[in-house]
């Protein structure tokens, strides 16, 4: 038996068939669609390296059964840039040294995009740290990560003022 599955991944609609219902969203992305940006760290929802957006909300792809999000729009770190132009959060991570080894970085960046979209942390570093606590960085780049989130948020606000 195979299971039909339709997902819009980084803006492209895909009709898939799964031969096994055990496939998580993370394994689907990495092993079958070769989108290896989302990382398999703990595979238990404890580290956040697998963070992706499902219908605009950040979730742990490792604890999401692919079949259960049938019909959803999924955004991975590969879907953030527009051509050669990086997403403002990606630019801010580079400018603020928000990583060292880079393993957690795709999850951090996607999580930060989700956090900014939620619009609840404001410019309070404590609220940003709390809002990003689902993403562990064992290099300890947290200071740069908070700076990057603040900068990306400010850039977005400035952009919105320009277009308003």
């Amino acid at each position: 038996m195979t299971y039909p599955l339709t997902l819009t991944i980084n803006g492209t609609a895909q009709s898939l068939r799964l031969d096994d219902p055990r496939v998580t969203l993370l394994d689907l992305l990495r092993e079958r669609l070769h989108l290896t940006g989302a990382k398999k760290g703990c595979d238990r929802g404890q580290c956040g390296a697998c963070t992706v957006l499902v219908d605009g909300r950040r979730v742990n792809a490792c604890l999401t059964l692919a079949l259960s999000v049938d019909g959803a729009a999924v955004t991975t770190v590969e879907g953030l840039a527009r051509g050669e132009t990086l997403h403002p959060v990606q630019t801010a991570f580079i400018e603020h040294d928000a990583f060292q080894c880079g393993f957690c970085t795709p999850g951090q960046i996607v999580s930060a995009v989700g956090l900014i979209a939620e619009g609840e942390a404001g410019t309070d570093p404590e609220r940003i740290r709390e809002g990003m606590s689902g993403n562990i960085c064992r290099c300890g780049a947290y200071h740069g990560i908070v700076e990057a989130v603040l900068a990306a948020q400010a850039a977005r606000a400035a952009e919105e003022r320009k277009t308003a």
Binding site: G45, G48, R58, V59, L63, S111, G114, S133, G134, N135
Partner: peptide, 9 residues
């Protein structure tokens, strides 16, 4: 409780 990712799900 948990993290923003887990609370979203």
């Amino acid at each position: 409780g948990a993290s923003a990712q887990l609370r979203n799900a």
